[in-house]
Design a binder for these strands. Structure first.
Lengths: 181, 181, 181, 181
DNA sequence: GATGAATGAGCTTTCATTCAT
DNA sequence: AATGAATGAAAGCTCATTCAT
């Protein structure tokens, strides 16, 4: 059911998402959706939780290795394959978060957790001399996270700007930006 | 009427925007809205046009001076004052662009125009030695534009992260990132 | 629900029919109507089907007996009693058929089926010597069907012209027209 | 303006007719329509008047000659050429007459006048021995008028049944029906 | 656990009509 | 004589939600 909801949000946009469509996508009746989720807000919150779980898992995976390139590479890879619907859904939920207090909170907490984890990785990178030290890790994490959000925003509108070759160039540019002089 | 529509989009989100609310905000009846805009799509396209006009004006203003710091400063300033509703509306429209082909196009064209103008400024910066040369201006423009989009995305959810002191730190970090070694 | 729709069409005319009125007539809410019929077109098609079912039933009933007088008598009877709303609704739907392709087709098929059945009855009548043979049965069926349509058209405007005595005269005239010399 | 209104009624059906469309068709603004006709009812009545004027003119033309065949021929001819829009509009107005008392009356008067004129022609025909005498002229007029109405009803739905060859057959059948034994 | 009938509010849109200009 | 801005009611339709089964 969650997967169905995410698929609908990704394909139709938040405004175009309805319990009916989610039910149809899941192959159930409308009643089934409201049986599992008390109301739309709850359904959407559950989606947000689920999507950020994916996100965190990726971060966990790269925590020990301090592989910033690998991490960003993975983000960019997501834009190209089937998982791009994950990104599209995330974007739609972020855009709506402000007007659905219930899960604005979910997003806030998860986001800050994500930024902290990223900052920790960057700190390690600075210690190992692979990340520039003239900008605080926390601020760098903010910029990287902003860049990734910026990509997220452009992806649905200009997917052609995320073709493999171009993706690689973007990745290298980011690495150059954060590398020591 | 346009101003009313933008205000509603900023305050209620795209999904929460209705012709009724726009009419109410403008102090007119529903019929008046549909008199000026044949349908919702047209209204929304007009908003997108208007918002990007603001945007372009800012760019024009900084074209000659090669003042990247001033330009980014201005963007960040917008997040704090009354004009923040402009950003909020832009964000909502961007999130919906993919599902409204009519103005997805508007955004695409305007966006690429914006990126090109930014790249031209950066090229001049490189020539004058105030912008690093080891990353192509075009790619740098992409990253800056992505960062600004990322901020745009966080603003509605965590406005407290854009208070003056923090804004300044973000600005300095960006300048450090793009400055020559 | 169908009965309610037909009643509304008969009483208010096609242009005066709305889903709201149908709902009210049926003692339900607007939502219930759209629950059973995806849209107005579907509702109207269903009405057309239902009305022609009545029609065909009458024809079936007279198929074996070759009782043309009885058949026409029955048509005329309908104009006088409560079933007259059936005729009124049929007329409204016919008038609108051209602009609602979905059920223009329904009407076309049903109508041709009806004319063929009528022609078959007339052929039998010719064989039994109770129907004139100098006009092909198929053409006679066309004229009879046209006459009945013509009555259908006048009924709502001049109901006083279909009072019993007058009805009988009309019936006798038709019988005289199609009887052998 | 009248011509425009008739064209719209013929093309879009009564339910699909709006003052806006009439204005557009006439190349004027909405205000102009309401300037000439106080309201929609008045516009529609004026159309009815105008259409019946055409009708009466045809009858006048055949009054002296007692040429029933010519008269019916002319009706059938109308179904094929550009004037078919006249018929289509007449039909739409007839279908709506019952629900617009203002011009239901117009139609009633005009119709009875028409039937009387037709009956007078048939009486002359009976005197000259070209029309059967075993049915009263008045009843015959009714049947002919009903047949013509029936055709009017089928025309928009099955125009292919009024091609020249078929039209001729229909005409001959009618003549046979009303000719003396 | 799941269905599906039904509600009622809200949506976009169309429309006849009014009226200052 | 004609325009065109504006109204407000009503239309078809979608939706989240409820609830008996």
């Amino acid at each position: 059911m969650l997967a169905a909801a995410i698929a609908v949000i990704a394909n139709e946009g938040y405004a175009g998402t309805s319990m009916r469509k989610v039910a149809k996508q899941a192959g159930h009746t409308t009643g089934a959706v409201t049986y599992y989720f008390a109301n739309k807000e709850e359904l959407v919150s559950a989606c947000a939780q689920d999507l950020f779980d994916h996100f965190d898992a990726s971060l966990d995976h790269h925590k020990e290795t301090v592989d910033v390139r690998g991490l960003i590479q993975e983000w960019l890879d997501w834009t190209g394959n089937d998982d791009s619907s994950t990104w599209l859904a995330v974007f739609q939920l972020l855009a709506h978060a402000r007007h659905e207090p219930a899960f604005a909170d979910v997003i806030k907490k998860r986001y800050s957790k994500f930024r902290k984890a990223l900052a920790r990785i960057l700190v390690k990178g600075q210690e190992q001399g692979v990340v520039r030290k003239d900008i605080k890790a926390e601020l760098l994490a903010d910029q990287l996270s902003a860049i990734s959000d910026g990509w997220l925003m452009m992806l649905p509108i200009e997917p052609e700007r995320f073709k493999p070759a171009r993706s690689r160039a973007l990745l290298e540019a980011v690495i150059t930006l954060i590398s020591p002089l």
